[in-house]
Amino acid sequence: YFQGQLNAMAHQIQEMFPQVPYHLVLQDLQLTRSVEITTDNILEGRI
């Protein structure tokens, strides 16, 4: 994955969860590489 793709995914998640800091979303995406998994992590309070 290149950074631009991760940034696009992070923006997509931020639209759904504007209360979660962008850098935390991006940090999780770098591990998961998945909008779905990061979204689940937010919903389950891991982020």
Rank of each mutant, 00 (worst) to 15 (best):
Y1T: 13
F2N: 15
Q3I: 05
G4H: 14
G4K: 13
G4E: 15
Q5C: 14
L6Y: 06
L6G: 02
A8S: 09
M9D: 05
M9G: 03
M9T: 05
M9I: 08
A10N: 01
A10Y: 04
H11Q: 13
Q12F: 11
Q12T: 10
Q12V: 11
I13P: 00
E15W: 07
E15C: 15
E15L: 13
E15A: 12
M16R: 13
M16H: 07
M16K: 11
F17A: 01
F17G: 00
F17T: 01
F17C: 06
P18M: 02
P18Y: 03
P18R: 04
Q19Y: 15
Q19R: 09
V20N: 02
V20Y: 11
P21H: 07
P21L: 06
P21W: 05
P21N: 08
Y22M: 14
H23D: 15
H23V: 07
L24Y: 06
L24H: 07
L24S: 07
V25Y: 04
V25F: 03
V25K: 00
L26F: 09
L26R: 03
L26C: 12
Q27E: 13
Q27A: 13
Q27C: 13
Q27G: 07
Q27I: 11
L29R: 00
L29S: 00
L29I: 07
L29T: 01
Q30S: 08
Q30Y: 14
Q30P: 01
Q30C: 15
Q30L: 14
L31I: 13
T32D: 00
T32K: 00
T32F: 02
R33T: 06
R33W: 15
R33Y: 10
S34K: 03
E36P: 07
E36W: 07
I37T: 10
T38S: 03
T38N: 01
T38Q: 01
T38H: 01
T39Q: 06
T39F: 07
D40S: 14
D40F: 12
N41M: 02
N41W: 03
N41E: 01
I42M: 03
I42V: 05
I42T: 01
I42F: 03
L43P: 00
E44A: 14
E44Q: 15
E44K: 14
G45E: 04
G45T: 02
R46I: 06
R46M: 06
R46C: 07
R46K: 10
R46A: 04
I47W: 06
I47Y: 04
I47S: 02
I47E: 02
I47A: 03
